[in-house]
Amino acid sequence: MYAQMVDTGVKKIKTLEEMTQEEQAFQKKIDDEIKIEPKDWMPEKYRQTLIRQISQHAHSEVVGMLPEGNWVTRAPTLKRKLQLMAKIQDEAGHGLYLYSACETLGVSRDDLVEDLHSGKAKYSSIFNYPTLNWADMGAVGWLVDGAAIVNQVVLQRTSYGPYSRSMIRICKEESFHQRQGYEILLTMMREGNDAQKQMVQDAIDRLWWPSLMMFGPRDDDSPNSQQSLAWKIKRQSNDELRQRFIDQTIPQLEVLGCTVPDPDLKWNEETGHYDFGEIQWQEFYQVLKGNGPCNRDRIRTRKKAIDDGAWVREAALAHAEKHRDSNAA
C-alpha cells in the first residue's frame, strides 16, 4: 500500500438526506458499483482525496526506485542485475501511469512533483528506510511489494475508473516482483552460506515492522477512512488489510526458515488469524513527519534530479517548438 493517512477533508459523512441531488446521484452510482469517469460530476472533496491518494502512490513508485538504485550497481550476478533493472523500469512505468491517472482529475504532473519536493505531498513511509545489504532487495520485493499488492488487489475495485484500471495493470507486475523477491531470499537461505543467511534475517528484522506500517494507522486512529470507504476509494480498512498481509506472509516466512522480530506473534485458533504485537506508532508518525532515517536524502535526491534536468526538459521543449511547423507538415 503506497498511500497512508490520505486526508479527505471531511469532518462528518453526510447522510442521504443531507446530500444535494447531484451528490445523491453520485453516491448512487458508487453504491451500484458504477465507475466514476473523469468527465463525470464528482464532489470536490472526492476529487481532492483521489488526487492526494493517487499522487502519493505515484510518488511512492518514484521514490521507491532510490533504495533499489542503491543496489542495482552492486547486484551479485548478471541475472539478478537484469531482474532488478527490469523491476526498476516497471516502477518508473507505474509512476507514469499513476501520474497520468491523476492528471485526469485536472492537475499537472509538474505541480504534483512540486508538492512532493516541497514536502506537501507524501509517499509511503517504507521508502524512508535504508537498504543495507543485498537481501534487502529480496525483502523489499517480498514484504514491501507484498504489502502493496494486498492493498492494490482491493483497489482494482476502487470507484474511480482510471485509478482502478491502473491498479489492474500494476498488480500483475507487482505480483511478479514479489515472487522474484521471495526467490532471492529463498536462494540465499537454501543455497547460501551462513553470512548470506544472516543477511536475510537481518533484512527481515529491519523491514518487518515498517512493512506493517505501510497499511497506515489503526482503524480507530484513521479519521479519514470512513469517508474514503463510503466513496469506495478505499475498499477495506487498514486493520483488515494488515491482518490479511500477516496471515498470508507468516507461512512464507516459515518456509524460508526465518523469524520476525515480534515475540507476541502467534496463531490464534479461535479467530483463525495471527495475533501480533503493537506497532511502534511513535516511530510511524515520526517517519511521516519527515524524521525517518532517509526522508531528507530521498527528497533532496529527487529534487536534485528534477532541478538538474530542467535544462534538458527546456531544451526538448525549445527544440519541439522550433520544429513544430515542420513536424506538422
Binding site: 533493472m85 526498476i88 509512476g95 534536468g309 530542467a310 526538459r313
Partner: peptide, 22 residues
C-alpha cells in the same frame, strides 16, 4: 547507465535509460 537510476531528468528518461541498460 545503472548509476542514473533515480537521477534522470524525467520519468520517461528513467524508463528509457533502464531499458537500454537492460
Amino acid at each position: 547507465l545503472c548509476e542514473w537510476c533515480g537521477h534522470a531528468p524525467a520519468l520517461e528518461e528513467e524508463i528509457a535509460i533502464m531499458n537500454i541498460g537492460l
